[in-house]
Write a protein that binds this DNA or RNA. Sequence first.
DNA 1: CGATGCCCCTGAGAGC
DNA 2: TGCTCTCAGGGGCATC
Length: 274
Amino acid sequence: MRRGLEPHLAGARLVRVDQRRPDLRFPFPNDFAARLKGARVMALNRRAKYLLAPLDTGETLVAHLGMTGRFTVEGRTPGDFHYAAGADPKHTHLVLVTDGGIAISYNDARRFGYMALIPTASLDQSPYFKGLGPEPLGPEFGAQVLVHAFAGRRQSVKVTLLDQRVVAGLGNIYVCEALYRARINPERQAGDLSPAEIKRLAKAIISVLAAAIDAGGSTLRDYRSAEGALGYFQHAFQVYGREDEPCLTPRCNGQVTRLVQGGRSSFFCRVCQR
DNA sequence: CGATGCCCCTGAGAGC
DNA sequence: TGCTCTCAGGGGCATC
């Protein structure tokens, strides 16, 4: 999403802001539209699951997409891009128009997303970012991070990986897929994993995320890239959403199991994930 | 500390 | 066609 939006947003000035309702998951910031209008977007960054747009006003627009949140870009000419392709316009809650003549709309059926404006200078100290773990594709992430985080931890490795304080930005799909790639049963206590297993897991996390980004993300239900394109990593899911289907590991002959952990579905193969 | 369930909200799909 | 039920890329909070 960040990669799709960046060319349209970074460097652009927001000439019109159409805020269509007072809240998403939380209320929009006070005077939200007025604080955005006229501002120049200096860059488009990401930390964990947050999109970050530092503005020339000294504030940074922070956006979390929740489950169904989606930014869509509309081109200068109708047909340039798919305008909120596949999205019900009644759930378009915010439209930003840039001086480049581009409209960027935020659509979110369930409204689990939220936005904030935080002084750029104190971003790292804000409650959104304080305490977040390292970026899994960043230089500081590796097996050692997990070795420390897992030590003595009795919680399941699945639930531990979804904890944003351990690693930032992993969600349900990619945790399931990473555990499959690492051949680790999601029910295992984090503190019981061997160094070799943790090493496999760290590598699996990195490889599954890199592959998914390469594929343009995973299109399930609502997700599309900023320019309306469908990601296609969902076709590469090896366990997620494949309950009762055969395990794809050669000669395994197991089948994919679903179980609920921490209120979310885990998908895995009991035969090859130990 | 950890597990569980409920909540926010809307829509899709299955089964009857 | 319509109803009811379950489930959904997230995550905060209360309870036990």
